[in-house]
Design a protein around this nucleic acid. Structure first.
Lengths: 113, 113
DNA sequence: CATATATATAAGTTAATTATTATATAAGCA
DNA sequence: TGCTTATATAATAATTAACTTATATATATG
């Protein structure tokens, strides 16, 4: 990081990432965009729970959404001030590609457009 | 990190660091050992509150304690599996030396032994 | 030994977090 | 148009977290 980042703001980011669902979401998104229903399948959680986690990530500016037909795709917001900081954390996490491959096998992967 | 670190464990670490008091404590300790009463002065919090934060960091193995007379000094545990991961985060935080200098000025710095 | 200082722990309270269920909205399709 | 699918939001319940007060323990000092 070039500019000084505030320790208080970092704490907020870390708290946000300090949840295994959100952290895994971020790692998955780091490997490519994903839509809400895919996350529902991956995490085996209710759809509102997934939406709420995504909203918190979006509110902090860590992810962005893009509507494509009936789906809403989420992706990492690389323009966020904290993106370099967050990437450094995500880079140290194990790859989550297997989760998307599982989806594919089960025919639940949404390959939009 | 050489060995794969579990995403779930990382989430636990990040949650622990996702509190501005504990995150600042870790940054201060990264610059040198500190005792409980110094933290009480720095954060202007009750002593039990400080002790409880330190215990959580200790329980996770991020810090270690050393008794010196009436004081208990805490320091970063560099042998912890997650130390390299944690350092990478701490390195991006602004220096907290001013907090210790303030203590010194107020005559509250404990320079043991 | 009595008192003061430093720290830890326990119990209780309040606030914050995470999930669930219920409901609303919007797009796609028969 | 009516039904299904995808998503979001609101209300609520359950759990966890963070702080406070009260108390215990250990060391230091007169």
């Amino acid at each position: 990081m070039k500019t000084t980042i505030e320790i208080e703001q970092v704490a907020v980011i870390l708290k946000l990432l300090g949840d295994k669902t959100r952290l895994t979401m971020m790692k998955i998104l780091d490997e490519g965009a994903c839509c809400v229903c895919e996350f529902v399948e991956i995490f085996q959680m209710t759809q509102p729970a997934i939406s709420q986690h995504l909203r918190r990530l979006k509110d902090m500016g860590l992810v962005q959404e893009e509507k494509k037909g009936q789906w809403v795709f989420y992706s990492i917001n690389k323009n966020n001030v904290y993106y370099p900081f967050v990437t450094q954390i995500l880079n140290q996490l194990p790859c989550q590609k297997d989760k998307l491959e599982d989806l594919e096998k089960r025919g639940k992967r949404i390959s939009c457009c």
